[in-house]
Design a binder for these strands. Structure first.
Lengths: 139, 139
DNA sequence: TATATACCCGACTATTTTAGTCAAGTTTAA
DNA sequence: TTAAACTTGACTAAAATAGTCGGGTATATA
């Protein structure tokens, strides 16, 4: 059970962005250097974050990215959703008639996994980007 | 973020075992048939569960497996540990001096991921095998 | 209006992990 | 004696992951 580095990078990058999002847009190049994440990989991530209205891009010289909302309004779950992180502990389809393993209508531990899923999702929904900004000392 | 089917199967199989663990040992063949898990795969899992003192095996004809403790004393976290499920949300080493990405001593979101890890582990530590037995109707 | 800076996008690939099989045993109750 | 059941290591196909590569497009500034 692990989180993909896609998600880890997305949260790291946005935390960095939120920290430096004072007035001028922040360039991916800067985030890349500060956080040690490949620039090309960041581009992929920010494309998705933009499509999901988490950031706005400003093109041209002096361009870069800014947050689309206040850091206090960005849920971590929004970020994970944007980069396609799936919180799926089970193969069972939630409201499927054919059931979890194609045999019984529900596998014997179905409810347990669903509970786990909710437990994790709750955590991500409660946490806001703002909560992360001042949590750790910066480099 | 997903749980391996190794873990899912281990929990399913043990829940099944706990349900049928009345007097006689339960054979893997029966668990395999009831739960739709490959017999050979179950053998692999129960080897690990046995090494970790979660089950005991009884050899020979009429043999099979029984729980080594009461179902109320088996934590789900014990099971996951036994089959090598890693709850690692981050690459960061917990008490390493070199730090998470080989650069800074701690990555910017380190504390957040650690909190998530604890959140998930707590869930698994609180849940006992017994809690699962009567949760879902059986097939 | 030239151009450097920065974003945009699809295709591709090496590596790792996962899920599961295969084959060949050993043990023991009946 | 033998069938049922556990034991073990090696192997493999498929999927997911973490990125790279190459070639764009948009626009602020000089």
């Amino acid at each position: 059970m692990k989180l993909s580095s896609k998600s880890r990078y997305a949260v790291m990058a946005l935390t960095d962005l939120a920290k430096f999002n004072t007035k001028d847009p922040v360039t991916l190049r800067d985030i890349s250097l500060r956080q040690g994440i490949s620039l090309v990989y960041l581009e992929q991530l920010f494309l998705k974050l933009k499509k999901n209205n988490i950031v706005k891009s400003i093109r041209g010289k002096k361009g870069g990215y800014i947050l689309n909302k206040k850091a206090s309004e960005v849920k971590i779950s929004d970020i994970l959703l944007a980069v396609d992180e799936k919180i799926k502990t089970i193969g069972c389809k939630k409201n499927s008639k054919e059931g979890c393993n194609g045999r019984s209508s529900k596998c014997i531990t179905h409810d347990f996994w669903e509970e786990l899923e909710d437990h994790i999702c709750d955590f991500f929904k409660k946490k806001k980007l703002e909560d992360l900004i001042n949590q750790t000392r910066f480099n």
